[in-house]
């Protein structure tokens, strides 16, 4: 009989893999269990944009800290992880949004993040295929992207954790010093009543058009789509892949909504980049984000020896590394590198 591990992680997406990596580095004996292919869940469906968002202080702190961790890890990642320090261009459609860009700039600067305002001319220099008549934008230099399925595999391999393929039906039956539930949008199946809802997103990928877009492009209205609670929303979000392909997003709808948001999502993208109309789409798919009421993740103790790391909404690739640092500290009993309380599990109780 092999001794039971110090920590058993359920779910081998980017979040579970990052936790395995961090806990193993801190000296814990870790095992991982997943019912499917490691990195084959939401992690294989998302865009892998490593992005600092500033909707609130807690989000800004976690994303900024995590993007920094990705930059430190970049040198070790295999080439197939396609890490690319590409930055992000936030696109302002009009003067009102341009004011929003300026406000964003000052927040980022206050937090020591490099960013530059782009006027109309600079925006087109940066991204010639955007439609005419936009007001400008904001380039956030430190953002990046990664191909998450390969990064997941890398983190798991580094952790040397044993990975078992099996479906877990009860967290309490697992023999380990601590159990981490990192099953993403499927977490409520193991934790009944958990305030996590699957939030569907469509994506479309094109054939290769090198140079068509040069940065991940996001409309300034994106935060409203991501953080608002409207049942259905789309936002312009196009990402050039290192292959020259274009990944077109983004849409959000809760699981009870049935309408296809693929078409409205594409229409939104065409409104910003008319040239996309002629680009050949080779595949479309959907994935599910794990959405909490305040759109912040749940990281911490649930009960006894059971811990949670889920609820990462549209940011789980970005925040996986920060999540792992916090969770390892909480499990192993040292001070977390950033305050952990905004993400505590019990914040929705009562």
């Amino acid at each position: 009989m092999t001794p039971s591990p110090d920590v058993m992680i359920v779910g081998a997406g980017i979040v579970g893999a990052a936790c395995a990596y961090e806990l193993a580095r801190a000296g814990a004996r870790v095992e991982v269990i997943d019912s499917g292919l490691p990195g084959g869940g939401a992690t294989a469906a998302g865009m892998g944009h490593l992005v600092v968002l500033d909707d609130n202080e807690a989000e800004l702190t976690l994303t900024k800290y995590s993007v920094g961790l990705w930059h430190s890890l970049a040198k070790e990642l295999p080439a197939a992880a396609e890490f690319w320090g590409c930055g992000t261009v936030w696109v302002a459609a009009d003067e009102v949004e341009m004011a929003g860009a300026r406000a964003k700039l000052s927040v980022y600067r206050q937090h020591g993040l490099a960013a530059e305002l782009l006027d109309e001319r600079q925006l087109y220099e940066a991204e010639p295929n955007l439609r005419a008549g936009l007001a400008g934008g904001l380039l956030v230099n430190g953002d990046a992207m990664v191909y998450a399925p390969v990064a997941t595999r890398f983190l798991l391999e580094q952790s040397k954790a044993k990975v078992t393929r099996a479906a877990v039906t009860s967290l309490d039956d697992l023999k380990a010093g601590a159990v981490v539930c990192a099953t993403g949008a499927m977490a409520p199946a193991l934790v009944p009543g958990l305030r996590v809802r699957p939030r569907k997103g469509y994506l479309a990928i094109t054939d290769r058009y090198p140079g068509f877009a040069r940065h991940p492009l996001v409309e300034l209205g994106y935060l409203q789509s991501a953080h608002g609670d409207s049942n259905e929303s789309v936002a312009f979000n196009v990402q050039p892949r290192p292959t020259g392909q274009l990944l077109i997003g983004s849409s959000r709808q809760y699981e009870d909504a049935t309408a296809s948001l693929l078409e409205p999502m594409l229409e939104r993208a065409f409104a910003y980049m008319p040239g996309l109309r002629a680009c050949s789409v080779i595949r479309t798919w959907t994935g599910f984000r794990a959405s909490t009421p305040d759109k912040l993740p749940m990281i911490g103790r649930l009960r006894d020896r059971v811990y949670l790391a889920t609820g990462h909404e549209g940011l789980g690739v970005t925040t996986s590394l920060g999540t792992a640092k916090i969770l390892a500290a909480l499990i192993l009993g040292y001070a977390p590198p950033i305050p952990a309380w905004p993400y505590r599990v019990e914040r929705f109780d009562g």
């Binding site: 479309a204 094109t206 054939d207 077109i248 693929l262 078409e263 594409l266 229409e267 993208a269 065409f270 996309l276 109309r277 002629a278 680009c279 050949s280 789409v281 080779i282 595949r283 479309t284 798919w285």
Partner: peptide, 13 residues
């Protein structure tokens, strides 16, 4: 997955 064959993005609309 759809589309069954690559098509110009606007065709999907």
């Amino acid at each position: 997955r759809r589309p069954l064959v690559p098509v110009a993005a606007e065709i999907l609309l």
